[in-house]
Amino acid sequence: MAEQNKQNKRPQGPAHGMGPIRGVIEKPKDVKKSIQRTASYFAAYKVELIFVFFLVILYTLAGLAGPYLMGVAIDGYITEKDLPGLTRIALIMLGAYLLSLILQAIANWIMANASQKALKKMRTDLFHHLQFLSLRFFDRNPAGDLMSRLTNDINAINQAVSMNVTSL
């Protein structure tokens, strides 16, 4: 960087000498294998994932109880003008919502830890792998290109995983 070439008196195209920044989305060569490989990183967190899976089912059910109970409240108590019943069902709704809140927070928390650790392992392995590639590989692939590939891809996987945690 420090020894950057300053002989250039005529400003040239701005892309000169910099690794290409590619906006094109490349298709994975073997989708099945890519998915399998990605999945294998999460397999290490099987127990957590199964636990989260049950939590998700539970909180989804608790969440669904809300609208159902609301229907019950309207048809069964409000139209019947049953005040104590209405209060009772309101309390049940409160319980369902609270349960949903707690379960969801726990599930998210576990997922956050698991997914970030899986991503970390993925990066570590990637770096490890880089160390074993031949110099021929580095001759063929310009450093700038490799960098933009690695950083963009790490970013993309990160975003994909982070997004899905909340919208599981």
């Binding site: 949903s100 809140l101 969801q104 927070a105 599930a107 998210n108 928390w109 997922m111 956050a112 830890n113 997914s115 970030q116 982070s162 945690v165 909340t166």
Partner: peptide, 10 residues
């Protein structure tokens, strides 16, 4: 992620 995992359910 921990922040986010609490805030959204909340």
């Amino acid at each position: 992620m921990r922040y986010i995992s609490f805030v959204f359910p909340l």
